[in-house]
Simulated scan of single mutants.
Amino acid sequence: MAALGKARFLLQHKCSVYKLSGCRYFSVQSVRHSESKSPVGFIGLGNMGGPMAKNLIKNGYSVTVFDVSEQSKEDLRKAGANVVSSPAAVASEVDTIVTMLPSNPHVIEVYTGKSGILSTVKPGSLLIDSSTIDPMVSIDMAEQCSKKNATFMDAPVSGGVLAAASGALTFMVGGPASEFPAAKIILENMGKNVIHCGGVGTGEAAKVCNNMMLAISMIGASETMNMGIKLGLEPKVLKDVLCTSSARCWSLDTYNPVPGVLEGVPSSKDYQGGFATELMVKDLGLAQNVATTLKSPTPLGSLAHQIYRVMCNKGYARKDFSSAYMFLQDEKEEK
């Protein structure tokens, strides 16, 4: 509990000096190159990371990449990236790195593992993590990076695969204010909104809140579209009505869960790609852990967590989380 209390303090702290486990560390003043097109490293080339790295290349950056998937690496090689064999190899070549990884253990391994970033990181490097993880892990990574004279910032994203591909993501950034301008220069090539939320961990705090709201709204959108269609409304007409009325939300107008209503979204591609249900379960688990620690009531967040966990057990784990619509259809057929 003492550690969680420290975490809460750190998330609220706005200065560049942080207290962790009885020690003090200061934000590193970078000695990176001043030119905006300095080489960038990118680790984690999945549904989100791959398009993000490609946007850096499209915007004129030399990008060095690594991923455990050979196919993902080859895809980026064809796009013009320099592919290397490990996170350590990335860190040995560049002094600005973006990571986009699935969960806490992946981030810890990529940064602190035997072939991790910190084994070869250059002093003064800027390390930007866009994974969605526990804020406490971000705080710990920042401490580990500081021991290597490198700056760690958490910068999770919102917008989904379409925004990742079009460069329209929103970045929620936590870290030293003095380093935010340098991070923003890089992130603006992959997103249209880059928001400094405060100290290390506050970006993740904002993302946990965002994804809990998103999970709840997607279930609501799925229930509403399902009921309206059963009432005889044509799906696209119902979407147009809802999206020009007080029910309008991102889950309806940008990422509609009903197949055929919008082009290019996962629901129109058999719920392939996008944000997997199992990852939404992971994010809702983070939210519930925070809610329990802070004694913050989240009845709808808790229910959404349960629904997506059931979906995973019913075969939807690897499908996009908007498959909640199909899950409701399946439940109807089973009754």
Rank of each mutant, 00 (worst) to 15 (best):
G199M: 07
V241K: 05
S146H: 10
K148V: 00
L4K: 08
Y271G: 04
S92C: 02
T132F: 09
K335M: 10
M153R: 01
S246E: 00
A221V: 12
A221T: 10
T112K: 12
P266T: 02
G160H: 11
L11F: 07
K54L: 06
N226Y: 13
T298S: 05
V265E: 09
S302E: 14
K54N: 07
A287V: 09
P181N: 11
E35V: 01
S27E: 13
L286R: 13
V161P: 00
V110P: 00
E109Y: 02
S36C: 05
M311W: 07
F171P: 02
V237S: 05
P87W: 05
T99M: 00
A182I: 06
A7P: 01
I139N: 04
M136C: 04
I97T: 06
K314P: 03
D75G: 03
G113Y: 08
V121L: 03
M136F: 12
G80T: 00
S115V: 04
K54T: 07
L169Y: 09
Q329L: 13
N59S: 13
D95P: 02
G201W: 06
T96C: 10
G260W: 03
K295N: 13
M213V: 14
L20Q: 01
I133F: 04
V65I: 02
Y271C: 04
S246G: 02
D75S: 14
M218K: 07
F180Y: 14
I97H: 02
V258M: 02
S267M: 10
T170M: 12
K114P: 09
G260V: 08
V121E: 08
A247E: 14
Y308T: 15
M225A: 14
V68Q: 09
I117C: 01
I186N: 03
F171E: 04
C249Q: 09
V173C: 15
S323C: 13
N226T: 15
I133C: 03
V310Q: 15
F42C: 02
T292M: 12
M212S: 12
V17S: 13
G116P: 03
V281Q: 10
P257T: 11
A91T: 15
L238G: 11
P266W: 04
F66E: 07
Y271Q: 05
A205M: 12
F275I: 07
T292W: 07
A205H: 06
T64P: 03
P259M: 11
T224Y: 01
G175L: 04
